[in-house]
Design a protein around this nucleic acid. Sequence first.
RNA 1: CGGGAUGUAGCGCAGCUUGGUAGCGCACCUCGCUUGGGACGAGGGGGUCGCACGUUCAAAUCGUGUCAUCCCGACCA
Length: 574
Amino acid sequence: MKMSKLFVQTLREFPSDAEVVSHKMLARAGYIRKLTSGVYNYLPLMWRVLKKVENIVREEMDRAGAQELLMPFVQPKELWEQSGRWEVYGRELMRLKDRHNREMCLGPTHEEIITSIARDGLKSYKQLPVNLYQIQSKFRDEVRPRFGLLRGREFIMKDAYSFDTDEAGLDKEYQNMAQAYKRIFERCGLDTKMVQSDSGAIGGSVSHEFMVITDTDAGENDVFYCEDCDYSANSNHAISTLVEAVTDGGYEKAEIVDTPNTKTIEELCEFLKIPSTVILKSLVYIVDKKPVIALIRADKEVEETKLMNAVGGIDIRIATAPEIEELMIEKGFNAAKGFIGPKGMDGIRIIADNTVKDMKNFVVGINEADKHLVGANLGKDVIVEEYADIRLVQAGELCPQCGKPLKVTRGIEVGNIFKLGTKYSKPMNAVYLDKNGKTQPFVMGCYGIGISRTAAAAVEAHHDEFGIKWPLAIAPYHVVIVPVNIQDEKQMEVAQSLYEKLLANGVEAVLDDRDERAGVKFKDADLIGFPYRITVGKTISEGLVEYKVRESGVQEKVTPEVAAQHVIDAVKAL
RNA sequence: CGGGAUGUAGCGCAGCUUGGUAGCGCACCUCGCUUGGGACGAGGGGGUCGCACGUUCAAAUCGUGUCAUCCCGACCA
């Protein structure tokens, strides 16, 4: 490709609406252009990158035995009613009506569709196992799209679905996919961590996420991991062993004491001269529009997804101050934000974290302003009927596998694998006949990779102040050849023949034939992120060109033949 | 959902307070000059100032509404 013909416009400045690196870089370097919130045009450079990621995914999925197909973007309501998700998926599901007023949606994922395909096409155990996948645009009407391609409303995803006769078969395929994913991300030049995760709205029991580790805001997930063993988990699923702490308040009897102006845990600790580990904290959440009280040791935080799962809900948020006051008044108390407690909250579901079990003679709110009950005990002063792990792990707590302190980092989720079991096959009556002629529901798994997110994550992981440093395997082009002065016949001649030689050897090369000053070409090359650059300049009089590696910054003066060979070898090694 | 901010040329912005028929930098086109890290000079093309209604002789500018975009928040007791 000649640079003069390449459809790209680099900008001098970062667009004002971008805040994360990948969004800034991709927009400024002319890869993407926003059409509307969370929806982007993939310009030619971007499309080349996306196709490369897709092809790597395709090759590895095929190698793993999966078969590609393509399902529709528009889906009928009826199938979603069969799975029960039409009601529960919420506003993220983009719904629309056709001219006959029939309700449809834009597919955010394809469990319903693939299950209907399997239901119709897989009749016998002899046809199993099967793994079907597609690469396609998805639409999710996010509450707040941001971070460019990392959290778009429309994005490209690879989604695969496996069908097995039993759990053992599913386990095997799950491992098979985990291996395929490792190869895929490695080939894309990404370091990923496979972490345990909650299975979320998609449902099912076991799941793992593949995270690109980053230390920026672009990583929207907290990942807890152990450096001494292989334990790692998303914060919504992580567990830990607590460091030992004082959980006995030491009070000799239960009594109500005045605790003026102690609306926060810190104020209460200071006033009573006690550690927060002997305070029982009461938090009000609204789960599926109904209040739920969560009890937890006050030095710990509640993990909302865990709480939601414990309750069995599908939507959760912390209650607002007015809602809390309303609840207190409804139960016959005066509004006293900061002093709420479980006592007298009849009819409200109360769930206590497991940390509460060990607490003795503790301090707890009693729904009265400026007062707390000290020396409280379970079964007497606080009645708990439901315990669960609803605690957010904190760095420094101990690894559940080996007992060493856990660390935390941020991660970008680029892939996930789920064991669905019969979550969809049962309600949708997707069954096959087993050896005994008996109908059985498929045992399913599903496996996703965010193609566009993977590309953006690669930029997050590989860039510097000057621009993108694409891994060779997913770079839009492998190399740019820069003749410093296109008026110089010798330079152009060498550049042109280098260009042709590289093309002939299967290298994707760009010849920067623009009549621009060298600085402009270098800036653009760095911004766009060509993995290699060959500069043909003054030193051509000595028969030398400059060969430069974008990733390392290493450059050397070599003959055109040697420079070409470097690139050809690198590309062949892919 | 709540709060805040912003919509003026492809991108980044000024002009708005104090109404008078739109400007700067980059990008783009032409010519000259220049050619190793975003040169310089001259000339040029491109905008119903987000949209609607209103006030006014006159609206980018004032008012109301609306749409869009971005950020923050959604109370940890």
